[in-house]
Design a protein around this nucleic acid. Sequence first.
DNA 1: ATTGACAACTTAGAATTCCAAGTGTTCCAT
DNA 2: ATGGAACACTTGGAATTCTAAGTTGTCAAT
Lengths: 122, 122
Amino acid sequence: MVEKTGQPAYLQIVDELRGQIRSGALPAGTALPSIAQLGERFDVSASVVKAAISVLRTEGAVIGQQGKGVFVREVPAEVPEAVSASGATGEILDQLAQMRQSLKELRDRLAALESAVFPEQK
Amino acid sequence: MVEKTGQPAYLQIVDELRGQIRSGALPAGTALPSIAQLGERFDVSASVVKAAISVLRTEGAVIGQQGKGVFVREVPAEVPEAVSASGATGEILDQLAQMRQSLKELRDRLAALESAVFPEQK
DNA sequence: ATTGACAACTTAGAATTCCAAGTGTTCCAT
DNA sequence: ATGGAACACTTGGAATTCTAAGTTGTCAAT
């Protein structure tokens, strides 16, 4: 991480990733590169990448799933001020995240069921 | 930090501090206790307190000034209660509740199907 | 009395090292 | 062939250790 913008490294990474998300280079639902890979790419330690992802997480731009990866959320979440995780709005975002999680789980289970009931028509 | 809420320590501290800010125990403009003091009070390491403050910082609830302290920002905004349960937000919470109900129902039906199609998968 | 040095705090950023826990794959033994 | 163990990755949380840099108070020398 050499950029001489004066910004700390973890914020530079936040900006970079947020840009890629907004630009569509990282579409909703896709996984970010792993922490190790990002650390390698930006030439920083894992702790810096973790700090960056932590910011994106509390912003709601991204959701981490243990053991799998960090995924771009379906809703940019437009949270300009405070509000992001406090008060009613934060509550709602939390619940939405959980419901999205549940939906994904249901989708997966349903897909498994389908391929069992309607075998091999690929 | 012993509380058995299941929440990680740094989020418990976030909640605690956010509560004190909203309740007025920490009015806008006042400094939080120092990182060392908070670590002592909650019986966690400085890194945990830093993580908590980092969340509050990216939420905009608080602002850190190097060499001086961490100060509560002047933007309580966050209309206390009235709006959160009335108006658009209350509406949204209601819809969330209904969707949660639907999700639960779908989960149950799916579970029934699964146990019919995949018999005895302990 | 003013200035300068210094010590003690403070936040901020970064690296490193653990451990816990979830996921996926591979491979071997039954 | 199927089950299960083992392994490799993954995120998440936490502690520890540095360094950098800003603030404040004290104290001594001029």
